[in-house]
Design a protein around this nucleic acid. Sequence first.
DNA 1: AAGGGACTAGACAGACCGGTCTAGCGCGAT
DNA 2: ATCGCGCTAGACCGGTCTGTCTAGTCCCTT
Lengths: 210, 210
Amino acid sequence: MGVPVARATTPRKEPLGTRQRILRAALRLFRQRGYHGVGINEILAIAKAPKGSLYHHFPGGKDQIATEVLEMISERVVEMIQAEAGPTTAEVMRGIGARLWQWMQSTAASGGDGACAVIAALAAEGDTAPPVALAARRAYERIAAALAQRLERQGLAPRAARERALLAIATLEGGGLVSQTMGEPSLFLAAVERAASLCEVASTRKGKPS
Amino acid sequence: MGVPVARATTPRKEPLGTRQRILRAALRLFRQRGYHGVGINEILAIAKAPKGSLYHHFPGGKDQIATEVLEMISERVVEMIQAEAGPTTAEVMRGIGARLWQWMQSTAASGGDGACAVIAALAAEGDTAPPVALAARRAYERIAAALAQRLERQGLAPRAARERALLAIATLEGGGLVSQTMGEPSLFLAAVERAASLCEVASTRKGKPS
DNA sequence: AAGGGACTAGACAGACCGGTCTAGCGCGAT
DNA sequence: ATCGCGCTAGACCGGTCTGTCTAGTCCCTT
């Protein structure tokens, strides 16, 4: 639906082009201030691109940028999930948490921000921009599916697997958010541990999924 | 710092006045779309008040409104925590969760929104509005303190109590957010249960807090 | 060498933003 | 009755927002 033009996966040349620079800048800014909190001029300034380029690559404007950012990072996380070789899903979770942690730290050092909950930042205010909210939902859906798949492989029923996956995501998002707001990075690590324990499947039955 | 005027707790008359209407409208809108996603004109339209009234009651403008909204709801939650009579903190947590759940449901029915993570919505983009971010932080701080107080009363060490309290808050916030984004209300209930289990203190020692 | 299309470049437009200002209403005190 | 003040009312202002438009550059193809 929508977005009639562009969206080149292998456009033609682009060694490391404008399009990517814009997406990266947008990712960073959206994470810091959410959808309505950033203007395209600001994105442009960071990406060092003129307006013409932006609307050439993203004829759908700000919405399209946000949507693609969401797709980009959800894809990245899904890859992490599938790539992590750890035996148990809990281990995988810890691995992802560690990588997100590094990511937060590095961007905090270079840019001055420090959250990871990009999707959250965009999802929280989708009410005025429905396509963005929808994209956020799809992003969660994809990540949850990848996580649930692993959980099922360990013998969990589909419904339970999905619920745990979503709960784990929620834990991470909430942890990242509160951790940033409070200025206590260690809190995020605690949340990661918490999410990981949620992915523990054997031994201690966890009961009441409803 | 700031806000030199007004802030009347018992102004003079006000049977159920403009000031409250503005705060309520702002609360609802901020919850739906975050700080930057809401314009004061919109708040005014819902509150059915003219601009003059707004700047009479809130000379600090939008920032002040957001700040007071944050204070209002954090106070409300703290009261809930202290009022809940349940013996264990876990029970208290469940009680709060249930009340937040009702609140979400009712506002969803009347207004069409459906999140509870107001603080999250405001905290997420405080970068451009530092006083708002600070207020969000204070709000979390107050709630966490109230929660931690109960946990300590059950024998937990201060540090551990605080960490668990913040983690519980994060779980609730994340749960509310993902639940709303995914359009699955039941997810919030699962998150509540998860937060409650985090407040279980005796019996099963939970290990590694760092 | 010449032509054409992808992309860059930024001036511009219209809408809307938060915030200020002056005017006036209504009620309680005197 | 009239005065004063808390509050309402909304026109207005400069600035910023997203998005459009025309020109121009650069490279790739032929």
